[in-house]
């Protein structure tokens, strides 16, 4: 396996070779070894979205039970770890709130262990925590979860590779073209500089947009710390008339 020093040097080379200002990860980012054979090498083809691409799937209260937003109450016992409240707004690229739309999350437990059968590293499973949640945004585009702060965990990209603690997010907009799957991180993580997935976003300002903010006004007395993370989806294409038809 390659050393962290080798990966870190490759990250620096890739950053130096990338024009500044990119808003999205490079998909040809070889320090993330699994990407080597799994990214298209041809340029993406420009397409004007049409028809079904302009309409996101619709989710509602028949899809999501409100208790799914609290990852700490689903298994009969109190999970181990730092209880935290996580909230923010989902906006589209024009600043409009994405209302009543599905938000899905998954994460490791406080010890950095996923419930997933492929995660076999020797950290404990927490029987009171599976790390899966869903909610709908409200009329202002606000989502809200109660969960446990995840731990960092090792992986096999290179020798002594550790992922910064993160929560996976899956998001929909008003158009299917706005589909987003990403990861939210925690402020000040010492693993940021070492992580080829986070560093696949070569622009510091863009990387910063994946980092939540600690918010003491969200923190509740003798109960939970509070973090805030707003999400901006890509821009829409439907004309205002088309949109208004269906709001």
């Amino acid at each position: 396996m390659d050393s962290q020093a080798r990966i870190t040097a490759e990250i620096a080379e890739a950053h130096a070779a990338t024009p500044p200002g990119g808003a999205q990860p490079r998909i040809d980012f070889l320090p993330y070894r699994s990407s080597a054979l799994r990214h298209p090498t041809k340029d993406l083809r420009h397409a004007d979205p049409e028809g079904i691409e302009l309409v996101a799937p619709v989710f509602g209260h028949s899809d999501v039970d409100p208790v799914e937003a609290d990852l700490t109450i689903q298994h009969g016992g109190e999970p181990i770890g730092e209880r935290m409240l996580l909230t923010g707004r989902v906006l589209d690229g024009d600043g409009r709130p994405v209302r009543h739309q599905l938000v899905e999350i998954w994460q490791a437990n406080a010890g950095g262990r996923y419930i997933h059968k492929r995660d076999q590293h020797p950290a404990p499973i927490d029987p009171s925590f599976t790390g899966v949640g869903r909610c709908l945004t409200d009329g202002d585009g606000v989502y809200r979860f109660t969960t446990i702060k995840p731990g960092p965990y090792p992986w096999r990209n290179h020798l002594n590779a550790w992922r910064p603690a993160h929560i996976h997010f899956s998001l929909f907009g008003t158009e299917f073209t706005q589909r987003l799957v990403t990861q939210m991180y925690f402020p000040g993580d010492p693993l940021f500089a070492l992580d080829p997935i986070y560093q696949s976003i070569t622009d510091q300002a863009a990387r910063d947009r994946l980092v939540a903010t600690y918010d003491h006004d969200l923190t509740t007395h003798e109960w939970a710390t509070g973090y805030r993370w707003d999400i901006v989806l890509t821009g829409t294409h439907a004309t205002p008339l088309e949109r208004d038809d269906h709001e």
Binding site: H116, V132, V181, I201, A206, V232, L233
Partner: peptide
């Protein structure tokens, strides 16, 4: 079209989505 906000970047779905998304 109004001013465009900088989008939140994507990240890989990773290997551990099977208990969450399907």
């Amino acid at each position: 079209m109004s001013e465009t906000l900088a989008p939140t970047p994507g990240q890989t779905i990773g290997p551990f989505f099977h208990d969450a998304l399907p």
